[in-house]
């Protein structure tokens, strides 16, 4: 697959990929955009070799995004940055303001509810209900077995249903 084809496929899946990046970054837009940018560059640089075609392009791209977000979380530089911001004040006020602007009331409520379930549960539910992936595809993206994905899926649904009832979310539906 050449660069141009990769680019077109990324563009086709872009909106969905951004939604997935947001999920992997706990709803932080600035962080999601950076993760997605890094993932796109990686795909263009190594995509021709690493995309084998065993899974769909979307599943593969989502796995790249998830891995990029995971690596990023553990980067030492982020820790240093946070330490610096604690000592010298947070320089990224603009990003926070932007996040607040884009967090509509409905999205804010949804994100609060999603914070009540574990990261794995949140991810598998988002992949199935938001991105219309099968459980097998979701398991491939998350790099876990199908059985494990199914467990997270069932527990996540039960937990979310309870939280939705508590928050009176039935009125929104």
């Amino acid at each position: 697959m050449d660069d141009e084809s990769l680019r077109k496929m990324m563009e086709t899946n872009h909106t969905s990929a951004f939604g997935w990046a947001l999920c992997c970054c706990n709803g932080d837009r600035e962080e999601a955009a950076e993760v997605l940018h890094t993932a796109y560059v990686q795909v263009l640089e190594k995509g021709q070799d690493s995309f084998s075609g065993k899974s769909s392009f979307k599943t593969w791209l989502f796995a790249v995004i998830r891995n990029t977000a995971r690596k990023r979380r553990f980067q030492i530089s982020r820790r240093i940055k946070k330490l610096q911001s604690l000592v010298m004040g947070n320089p990224s006020r603009q990003g926070e303001a932007e996040n607040r602007y884009y967090r509509s009331e409905i999205r804010e409520q949804i994100l609060v509810l999603l914070q009540q379930i574990s990261r794995r549960q949140r991810q598998v539910l988002q992949l199935v209900f938001y991105h219309d992936l099968t459980l097998e595809e979701a398991a491939a993206v998350m790099n876990v077995s199908v059985g494990s994905a199914r467990t997270h899926y069932e527990r996540g649904k039960d937990r979310l249903r309870v939280e939705m009832r508590k928050a009176g979310w039935d009125h929104h539906v």
Binding site: I106, I110, F129, Y130, L160, R161, W169, V173
Partner: peptide, 8 residues
Amino acid sequence: KIKVFFEQ
């Protein structure tokens, strides 16, 4: 309901 929740 969950489907609609994520759809929103």
